[in-house]
Design a protein around this nucleic acid. Sequence first.
DNA 1: TGGTTATTGTTGGGGCACCCAATGAAACGG
DNA 2: CCGTTTCATTGGGTGCCCCAACAATAACCA
Lengths: 158, 158
Amino acid sequence: MDSVESRYGDPMSDIPYAPSRIRALPSWLLGRAAARGHRLVADALASEGMRMMHHAVLSAVAELGPVSQAELGRTLSIDPKDMVAIVNDLQKDELVTRTPDPKDRRKNAIEISAEGRRRLRRTQRLGDEANAELTAALSAEEREQLIALLTRIALPGE
Amino acid sequence: MDSVESRYGDPMSDIPYAPSRIRALPSWLLGRAAARGHRLVADALASEGMRMMHHAVLSAVAELGPVSQAELGRTLSIDPKDMVAIVNDLQKDELVTRTPDPKDRRKNAIEISAEGRRRLRRTQRLGDEANAELTAALSAEEREQLIALLTRIALPGE
DNA sequence: TGGTTATTGTTGGGGCACCCAATGAAACGG
DNA sequence: CCGTTTCATTGGGTGCCCCAACAATAACCA
């Protein structure tokens, strides 16, 4: 009797032949592609001591100006619990300031600092490079197609 | 002085206006879309008491026949550690059998059971329905485009 | 006006996917 | 025969996601 693998797959190739139905599903492909994207971006940002969510929040703060944690969370679909930790870290590194909002004392006004802007410039470049590598197999036109398609299925209701 | 949020966003809309650079990056869109896909599929499979990875493994076992855990892991990009737990669960529910391979005593020959096939029929339908909902905003042609594009960036080197 | 409802930041707990390192048993290869 | 590789397994760890509760505060409305 053969070994269980000798009947299937090509022993000559590194990657076994896999006609899996699963691997043709959008949900599966999205998971794999997202995992690779996260890996590429996270590794790139790590050289600046930043993590993906931290970079995302810093970028959003830079664009939105003084903004509450709740709105940041809604904008980036980040859980309030996680937002607390992220802003804590960014504040500890003096990349953002957290000021009580005099008009609504429940809110914190999160604002980017000068050091935050410097850090953001570098991490933004790293993030863009990682995304270029992620989509390196696509032409510029295909890259735009992908972005357009993803935008339509990523956040239904927006 | 205004409240931190009154200067930005449209208080009339539920979703705040967000011109975030981040949200246009493939890596970010992939993360959001993958999260939504996972939520849809996981929720659907939960009605059958199955989780996503379990369904994926069961489906791969059905297609590959008697197969080792290592090859399953390579096919689906699942960590060996996680594979042990998944196969344990599937075996406990009697959806697969785990037989020592007489030809290579390191390997387990994983094979789907009759009950496994019945379960798979249902979960496959649920998974397909969830994927249809995930891509409901796309035309059939766009759905194929998306799958083609994702396939090219999901697993580089294959 | 006053009482209810909603929002904000925070803390706590938990789940799932992903990743790496190490181990003993077994197979492989020169 | 001996070093290298593979396999299943155990262990530890990270990141993103989700829900529930809470006190302080604001907004709503009858």
